[in-house]
Amino acid sequence: MIYDNQQISLTKEHWFAACSVEDAVINGGVCVKHGNEQIALFYFTRRNEWYATQNLCPHKKQMALSRGMLGSKNEEPKVACPFHKKTFSLVTGQCLSGDECDIKTYPVKVENGTVFIKVDTKEP
């Protein structure tokens, strides 16, 4: 396992190693700790795609999206919060349940069996 304290670079925007591919859950999410930030990392195995969003569901402010269910709405990949089934686009972060609450998304890449997430600022 590779943890986030193994920094790759020191630039302002940077990729940090979140976990190994084996740690990810098939067609589901895991929660990644990045300093005080909680990031939901999704391995949409069915589509062979990786996504990352904030873990906080903005509806009732619950740290829950990583435990949410993946799906699609007209081809657009989405996650449903386990609390009240609010759904969010994994691509844009837009709330698809008709609410005005979008979530933050993060770029993800996989290299040599390690999953990297790109964040704005380096961990303090």
């Binding site: 069915r46 799906g71 709405k73 989405k78």
Partner: peptide
């Protein structure tokens, strides 16, 4: 679920059909 979706459905499922 995936085999059911492949055989009988389309797309990637959702919070309604998965459970």
């Amino acid at each position: 679920f995936d085999t059911v979706l492949d055989e009988l459905g389309k797309g990637d499922g959702c919070e309604t059909c998965r459970p």
